[in-house]
Each structure stands twice: as structure tokens, then as C-alpha cells.
Amino acid sequence: MHQPPGYEQYGSNGNPLACRLKKALYGLRRAPRAWFEKLKQFLVSVGFVVSKSDASLFVRVISGSTLYILVYVNDIIITGNLSTSIDWFIQLLNSTFSFKDMSDLYYFLRIEVTRSSGCLHLCQKKYIHDILDRCSMTTTKSVHTPMVSSSTLAKSDGECLEDLNEYKSLTGALQYVVLTRLDIAYAENRICQFMHNSTTAHMIALKHILRYLCGTLDFGLVFRPSAPLSLVGYADANWGLDFYDQRLTSGYFTTEVTWLLSLLQELKLKSDNTPNVWCDSSSAVVANPVLHSKFKHVKLDLFFVREKVADGSILVGEVPTCDQVADVLTKTLSVTYFTRLLSLLRVLPVEKMGE
């Protein structure tokens, strides 16, 4: 290590001495930011543009060649429309920095990637298996749903846990699983509400999720890149908003769709179809300009939706309750209903990804 300024010492030959590092210091607060800034400057210098929708995404479009770079600290995904451009950039990157080329993408941030018939299957089998192994549940009997349909969790259920660390640790680990397993999103959200005061009943609900995952290790999200853009109103906004009118969620969905359209535009992708936000309640479809006084607090959301509907960038429609895929994310369901909606949500085992 170089000596810090103002504390330089010199040897008998007059040359500056070097510090011998006995222990490396990891986790310096500024290190990731400094590294990202250095990498960002390099990418911009070779023609990349920073995405406005995602600060970790860089796009380079030059004479028919399109490159996408997604950065997470020192883990990088590189893709594009020309293999020659990808090879050129990898060589350039390797000549500037010390990098290891991992070849085709198959594992990234504990997410497994499988390709087949133009589809992508994102799975966290190994990560989930590690969680199950940690709590000795790899051979436990599996269940068909992540939460019992008749279950209602409350603060006063069961006796308080003496040690909350295990509950908090497992709950936090499952939050990362939700990235590829939307089927456990509602159950995970419910157990997260009791992290400050967990009971034996909450621990039972947590282990029920783990038992469900034990029987569905191969499940993951399936994407079809060539499929037309058609967005379903997955009801993330309903979490913790039960006391609001359902019309509030339309504003949330429209914001998410608008962001996604902006991201696709930066990726130079365009769909001929207008995205849809589906609601299973006619009152949730914003069409009537007359607002009741009790909805003053959501006026801005409603006007925002109307503007998007009026200019034709968003369609808000009604879908029958029996076909509302978002129910998987907002309530406990019977096994039959849950299984049917799960296939519509495209959370499938890898062997069914091409169907």
C-alpha cells in the first residue's frame, strides 16, 4: 500500500517505503460507489448511455449494433443483437479492467437462468434449497399452497418467541425469493407484518411457506421475449391498502406500466399493442369524471390514470373475478383456484417453460 500523504517515510536509499498490509479491509462504505463511478465513466466514454429508468442499465446503439449492460457492483450481464459486438466489448472491458468471462448467462445473483425454445426460466432452486437446509426442512412433507386458505394471522396468535433472530432471518431470506416466486408474495407479506412481535403461530405460517417451497423447488418465472406486451394488474398496491377504495390501485398500476414503457423505449423495443391494466371491479375502472368528496386524497391518482387513458397510452378494463390473476398476490386461495392462476402467472417448473 502507498503511504498516506503527510506520513511518508523513506529508506536508507532515499526511496519511499511501502506499507505492508496485514489485514484487508472489506465493506468500505464508499468502495462500491467509487467503483461504479469509474465503470460508468468508462462505459460512457465508449458510447453507452445511462438509462433514465434504471441507473444500473447502460445502452449503446451504433449503426445497427445494440448492446445492453446491466451492472450490480462487480457482476455484469452483457447482451446485444450482434455476437461480434458482444465479443468486441468483452475484449475491450478485459483490456481495461481485470474481469473473468463466465460465458453464457446461467447463474446471476443466486438466480438460475435456463433457455429453451425462445423462453427464459428464472429459478432460485439452489438458494431455496440452502434456506431449507439451514432449518433442516429439505425432506419435510410438502403442501400445495403457501398459506392455508382458512388462516388469519393476528398479533395475539400464539405465544411470543423467545428468540426472534431465526424468524427475522428466514423472513428476510424469503423476501429475495419473491423475485422469481410471485406465488409466495402474499404469504411472505403477511409474515413480514409480525417481525417486531413474532409468535409461535407466525413461525408455523413461516414454516408452511417453506414446506410449500420444498415441493416446488423447480418452479420459477417463465418469460417469452417475443410475446406481445400485455400487462396484468398484479395487485402489489393492495398490500396494506385495504382501507382505500380499489380505484387507488389503478393509479399505482398506471405508474408501473408507464415506467415499464419508458424502460422498453430505452431498450429500443416497441410493442404494437397498447398495455392493459385489468381490474375485477367495475368501480375500479376510472371512467366517470365525477368524484365523490371522500376520494379527495386520491384525486391526483385518478386524474393521472384518466390522462393516460385519454391519450391512448393505457387501457383500463374489467376482468371477471374468476380470471383475476392478481388474486394470487392479494389473498389466500383454494388449491384448485391457486393452481390455475399460478399457470396464468407463468410461475412454472422448468420442464413446462415451452408450453
Rank of each mutant, 00 (worst) to 15 (best):
A227V: 01
P289L: 08
Y7H: 04
K296D: 15
V328W: 00
M137E: 00
T332K: 04
L302M: 15
S230K: 13
E256C: 10
V285C: 13
M137T: 03
I191L: 03
T138H: 04
D101C: 07
G80V: 02
Y244S: 13
G118I: 04
D157M: 04
T66N: 06
G47V: 05
S116W: 10
G354N: 15
V113Y: 02
R115E: 06
R306H: 04
V49L: 11
T171E: 06
L342G: 05
F89M: 07
L174T: 00
D133Y: 12
Y186N: 05
H144W: 04
V73S: 02
G6Q: 05
K155A: 03
L105W: 01
L92G: 06
N238R: 05
I69K: 03
Q193D: 05
S98K: 15
S283N: 11
V290C: 10
I111Y: 09
L333H: 01
I90G: 06
V298F: 15
L70S: 14
G240F: 05
G220S: 04
L28E: 10
Q91L: 14
E159S: 12
D163Q: 03
G172C: 08
W88A: 13
L345W: 02
A205E: 03
A185W: 03
L21P: 08
Y10F: 15
K308V: 10
C135T: 02
M147F: 00
I131S: 00
D272E: 11
S262K: 09
L25V: 12
L342Q: 13
A326Y: 01
V305Y: 09
L132Y: 00
D272H: 10
N74A: 09
S343L: 01
S51M: 01
A326H: 01
G11F: 11
Q3W: 08
K294S: 15
G80N: 03
C123M: 08
N74P: 01
Q175C: 05
S95R: 14
N273T: 15
S230P: 06
R181H: 11
L267F: 07
D133A: 13
A18G: 08
P225W: 02
T255P: 11
D183F: 04
I86S: 06
V73I: 11
H292Y: 14
N288Y: 07
D157T: 05
N189F: 03
L264D: 05
W35G: 10
A31L: 07
I314V: 07
V286W: 11
L43A: 01
K100N: 13
Y337M: 01
V347F: 00
L241D: 09
K268D: 07
F303N: 15
G27W: 02
G312R: 04
L221M: 12
R340S: 02
P4N: 00
P5A: 02
L329E: 04
R181N: 12
A310T: 14
I111L: 07
N15V: 14
R211N: 03
L229D: 06
Y127M: 07
R224C: 02
T84H: 14
S53D: 00
T255W: 10
S250P: 06
M195W: 04
W35C: 13
T255H: 13
R190T: 10
D133R: 14
Y167L: 12
V290H: 12
K296H: 15
D280G: 11
N74H: 11
D327P: 04
Y186G: 08
D54I: 05
I90V: 15
I191C: 01
P146H: 04
H196N: 05
A310Y: 13
L263Y: 09
M137L: 13
D327Y: 01
